[in-house]
Design a protein around this nucleic acid. Structure first.
Lengths: 129, 129
DNA sequence: CTAGTTGCAAAGAGTTTGCATGGCG
DNA sequence: CGCCATGCAAACTCTTTGCAACTAG
């Protein structure tokens, strides 16, 4: 957990904010901030902290084994599902009502308790399909 | 894609069949067949082939960066969602009708085209919750 | 036979860590 | 000032690859 507010931390937070709803790999991030003063280990360490704090969310796509991260714009993101486009990597937010409907539907048909924040729908977005 | 039916390939297929519905890491697999005659590179190469053939499915859990694999018992697995328990790793199969209902629900509310076979619900199973 | 597969060891990619230096509060 | 964070390089883990030997068909 973070104690100090370093310039490296701020560089990363702004970068994530500028790329909200995009899945960013560590390389994407490193490339995006390459003109700034920040080492790769600082990137890794800050990302881990931001992830612990719930400011960004960690992901691993099935095809690459690389870690990716997405900025969590608001804390309500825990009450709705996310839809991520396999092609362009953009993430959309499913309406809360639809999300709840899906959770209930699953609950009715099995004893499985779905974790909304851990589940991501993959598919194709309007532009890519 | 496979051409020959080697003993190493058969060792792996039986191991996957014995552990259907479990998420197996490469280490799990290597440990499970350590008494058999098979090298780690053969495991990796066969797994890649089995995955291409659709006999097993590749996964990466969010927390570890490790690849995991699950045996696909029947080819119908493309028309229903899977529910994976975050705790014990077991996978359940959602009824096809429920799966379709969910896909439709999403389609009604957005232009997103969900890919059933790429999407996995994470949560807690009856025993673990 | 002969092309695909294996085992080994070496190479790669991504990530983590130890340690001295530097900076926030 | 004291502790936390940084940068660098080395270490680690998981996975892939080159190559000679082996084997299924």
């Amino acid at each position: 957990m973070q104690k100090y507010n370093t310039s490296q931390r701020e560089i990363l937070i702004s970068f994530f904010k500028e790329h909200a709803d995009e899945l960013l790999s560590v390389n994407d991030i490193a490339a995006g901030v390459s003109d700034k003063q920040i080492s790769k280990s600082a990137i890794y360490r800050n990302i881990a902290m931001l992830s612990d704090e719930g400011i960004i969310k960690h992901f691993v796509l099935e095809d690459s084994r690389k870690s990716c991260y997405r900025y969590i714009s608001n804390r309500e993101c825990k009450s709705h599902f996310h839809l991520t486009c396999k092609k362009c990597g953009k993430t959309m937010h499913m309406p809360k009502s639809t999300s709840e409907e899906i959770v209930n539907l699953i609950g009715e048909n099995s004893a499985f308790k779905t974790d909304i924040s851990q589940t991501v729908f993959f598919g194709l977005c309007e532009n890519c399909k």
